[in-house]
Simulated scan of single mutants.
Amino acid sequence: MSFHPRMMAAIHGFTPLSDSSTFSADGLAVDCWHVRNSAHAGGHYVSRHPRFVIMRDGYRIPLSETRDGDLQHCAACFVPAGMEVWSKIAQPGTLRHMDIHVSQDRLHGLMGRPPETIAPFFLRDLRTISPLVQMLADPDRPEPLREKLADCIILELLNQRSTQREIVSDTHVVGRLQGYVRQNLDRKIGVDDMAADVGLSRSQLNRVMRRTSGLSPYRWVLAQRIEHAKAQLASGQSFAEVALHSGFADQAHFNRVFKSLTGQVPSDWMNEPTQSVSAPILQDRTS
């Protein structure tokens, strides 16, 4: 028997690139979407049935349980029946995702307990289910196989919800972000971009930066740029070259930031008997 879920949505900034691919079975419906999004695309969604949302191609979508709540950058999530979910995507691009709608009765049968006891959750990684998602999205697969694949994906997501709630250590977050800054010295680095790279909300990222450095994320990035600049100055590059290679608008901007963070202008720092770099040195990009 086919299953016809109902979902209300108020969204903007999305353009379908192809017709959605839909598969349904008893108490189960799977929709596969491929869309283009503009900058700041988003909106909110609510379904009368429980729903699993799965991003594809390694994408993590920013979602929140409330309109003004912290955005969780997730690869997959579970949304209980009747719960609103809000999204806002900063950068334009394309994305593919899958919605698995499931009836209360079918989910109860899979889990062995009432769906009402399952809290919403947001997962940062798909881990082992990516191949299963790819097979489920293939319309040429036999329908009985696709139905079993959907059940397996649901069960695995529910299994992963506890293991992925582990708090990532501050050391891991800072180390990953240092690599992110290193690879993006030549462009503006936004707080949302940083949060998305480590799978945290803006407020969570701000707390990590305050704990580890006493700086806001924005000031922390400037400090990383200055440490990179110090290494370049020590190697004999000119002030103008250092400013350019460290991601500053011009030499005057570089001088102002350098003094605000170190208490000295670059020339005074260079004239000291010894120059030390207190943070890990960020080397230039090699490509």
Results as ranks from 00 to 15, higher is better:
Gly190Ser: 15
Leu136Asn: 02
Ala279Ser: 12
Arg113Met: 09
Asp99Gln: 10
Arg106His: 13
Gly58Thr: 04
Asn271Pro: 00
Lys230Tyr: 01
Pro144Val: 03
Ile100Thr: 05
Leu145Asp: 14
Gly179Ser: 08
His73Glu: 03
Ser2Phe: 02
Ala41Lys: 03
Phe258Leu: 11
Phe258Ser: 11
Ser21Thr: 12
His97Asn: 11
Ala29Pro: 00
Phe254Asn: 04
Ser38Pro: 00
Met135Trp: 00
His44Ala: 11
Gly13Asn: 10
Arg96Gly: 04
Asn206Ala: 15
Asp31Arg: 10
Glu116Trp: 03
Pro273Asp: 12
Glu65Thr: 12
Ile100Leu: 11
Ala25Ile: 01
Leu28Met: 07
Asp68Cys: 05
Ser21Arg: 15
Phe121Pro: 10
Arg182Ile: 03
Gly179Ala: 06
Pro92Lys: 03
Asn37Arg: 02
Gln232Pro: 02
Lys259Phe: 04
Phe248Trp: 08
His12Lys: 13
His12Leu: 11
Ser64Tyr: 04
Ala279Met: 10
Ile61Gly: 02
Asp192Arg: 14
Asp70Gln: 12
Leu110Phe: 05
Ser278Glu: 13
Leu95Cys: 09
Glu166Asn: 05
Leu205Asn: 12
Cys32His: 03
His4Val: 08
Ala223Leu: 10
Gln232Ile: 02
Val198Ala: 06
Met8Thr: 14
Ala75Trp: 01
Arg165His: 09
Gly93Asp: 03
Met98Val: 13
Thr15His: 11
Asn271Arg: 14
Arg96Asn: 06
Gln251Gly: 06
Arg161Leu: 05
His40Val: 02
Glu65Met: 09
Arg202Glu: 15
Ala9Arg: 15
Glu272Tyr: 01
Leu200Arg: 13
Asp151Ala: 09
Met209Pro: 06
Leu95Gln: 12
Asp192Met: 10
Leu222Val: 02
Val191Tyr: 05
Arg60Asp: 00
Val168Asn: 06
Pro142Met: 06
Ile226Val: 15
Gly263Asp: 13
Cys77Ala: 14
Ser278Ala: 14
Val102His: 08
Asp57Gly: 00
Ser47Asn: 07
Pro273Ile: 09
Val265Thr: 10
Tyr59Ser: 04
Asp193Asn: 08
Pro80Met: 06
Thr22Leu: 11
Asp192Gly: 11
His12Cys: 09
Arg219Met: 07
Met83Ala: 13
Val46Glu: 09
Tyr59Gln: 08
Pro266Tyr: 07
Val257Asn: 07
Val46Gln: 13
Pro62Met: 04
Val277Ser: 12
Asn37Pro: 01
Leu222Pro: 00
Val79Leu: 15
His101Phe: 15
Leu261Ile: 04
Glu116Met: 11
Ile167Thr: 13
Val35Pro: 01
Cys152Leu: 08
Ile154Lys: 09
Thr212Val: 09
Ala249Lys: 13
Leu215Cys: 08
Ser235Gly: 07
Ile129His: 01
Arg146Trp: 02
Thr262Phe: 06
Arg202Gln: 14
Lys259Leu: 08
Ile281Cys: 07
Ser267Gly: 00
Ile89Pro: 02
Ile153Cys: 03
His228Glu: 05
Phe3Tyr: 14
Asp31Glu: 13
Gln91Val: 05
Asp186Gln: 13
Ile100Glu: 05
Ser213Leu: 02
Ala231Ile: 01
Met8Cys: 06
Gly42Ile: 01
Met209His: 06
Phe122Asn: 11
Tyr218His: 14
Asp140Arg: 12
Asp197Trp: 00
Ser203Gln: 15
Leu107Pro: 10
Phe258Tyr: 11
Ala76Asp: 07
Leu107Val: 08
His40Met: 14
Gly179Pro: 02
Gln275Arg: 15
Leu123Asn: 10
Arg124Leu: 07
Cys77Val: 04
